[in-house]
Design a protein around this nucleic acid. Structure first.
Lengths: 205, 205
DNA sequence: TAGATTGTTAATCGATTAACAATC
DNA sequence: TAGATTGTTAATCGATTAACAATC
């Protein structure tokens, strides 16, 4: 029974992983929780606690082997199993995400993009032919896509989300300001850019 | 001495504000913490606790006046004072954010955009002439811009952030995967899209 | 051995939820 | 008055930090 790992831990560990990759390129072989914490502005306790969720791979007195730690995190976080993702809504944000380098390193690959605008359908975006939103179900099934990024206009968010659900999508990263109503089998994570920026502004008033 | 308000509270209250605006358009006059909680998938206790940070404006027995509550939140969260924002880095993501409708409602306005690519400098993006990153200091000062969105490539993130700091920017919304090193006077908030997507994937493994 | 650093348990801190007297 | 709902205090839950025995 693997104990439940908090979302915040996952996020931090992904950052550790990224930094370990950098250290590796630099040729650094070993690192302590203290050094890692200093660089990433957290505490050694936090680092050790986070890592302890995934096993014990440190050496008392000398810290962690960079390569070993990085690979083990990768394994635990499922970097080896490639996740196929689609993007629904090829407006500015959809296009930006389709062209975003930085997903591959994490074992994520954009496999299909959708829009409802005839001017966009059949056009190529970063090597991917844009398909009609109406074709979500067959395309998702055929390509075994299991995640989606939702970047359609607010007005069609709920409807498109439902299509994604019906197509068998298991997780949606929702960039619309709409509270999606879906079966609990679909995991939804909201990214609200306007709220992020406004929240930041509050703290400098 | 106004007690410190948690970031999470601010974020939720911004969502309440957005929903109250919607209710207002619908013609709904009153709402209880219970109804608000049901719609936004939280608890009445959470709603009341959050609102209590900003004052007491509910009526026992009948709930809140939608218009009054919305306006008071707006006032407390500083919607009336327009915040000027600039975007550094007009790649896909910068362009997407420059064209993003949804900031204005929150009292945020994109006032300038910057890039270092001669092909982009002097080009217009959503009505704004792109300026050279080297001109950040004068442009920011002249326009009294106090926040920035950082969407440059990782390699120049730290350098551009330092320019923003020197120009007097007080807050940066950082979309790069770089841990910025700046004076503590600059408030930095990180949005890591790759980490968001990967974290989501972890929970459907 | 002495020094450093781990993994884990206990203590602390903060955020969410429940409970309830006050009140419209 | 009876019913509903507030604002706030107390209880609970979860996450972070500190402490330390174990160990390389």
């Amino acid at each position: 029974m693997p104990k439940k790992i908090p979302k915040k831990t996952i996020q931090r560990v992904l950052i550790y992983h990224r930094y370990l990759t950098f250290l590796l390129q630099q040729g650094t072989r070993d690192i302590s929780s203290k050094s890692l914490a200093d660089i990433l502005e957290t505490t050694p306790s936090q680092v050790r606690k986070d890592l302890s969720c995934f096993g014990r791979f440190g050496k008392s007195g000398s810290g962690y082997d960079v390569l070993e730690l990085r690979d083990l995190i990768g394994k635990r976080l499922g970097f080896e199993k490639l996740r196929k993702v689609c993007i629904a809504g090829m407006g500015n944000l959809g296009v930006a995400l389709a062209g975003y380098r930085g997903f591959e390193d994490l074992g994520l690959t954009i496999q299909a993009v959708f829009d409802s605008d005839p001017k966009k359908i059949n056009r190529k975006f970063d090597g991917l032919v844009c398909r009609d939103i109406k074709e979500i179900a067959p395309v998702v099934k055929k390509n075994q896509i299991d995640m989606a990024v939702l970047t359609v206009p607010a007005g069609s968010a709920q409807e498109v989300a439902r299509r994604l659900e019906n197509a068998g999508i298991r997780a949606i990263l929702n960039f619309t300001p709409v509270k999606l109503t879906l079966s609990s089998r679909v995991k939804v994570s909201n990214v609200d850019l306007a709220v992020e920026l406004k929240t930041l502004s509050f703290f400098i008033r």
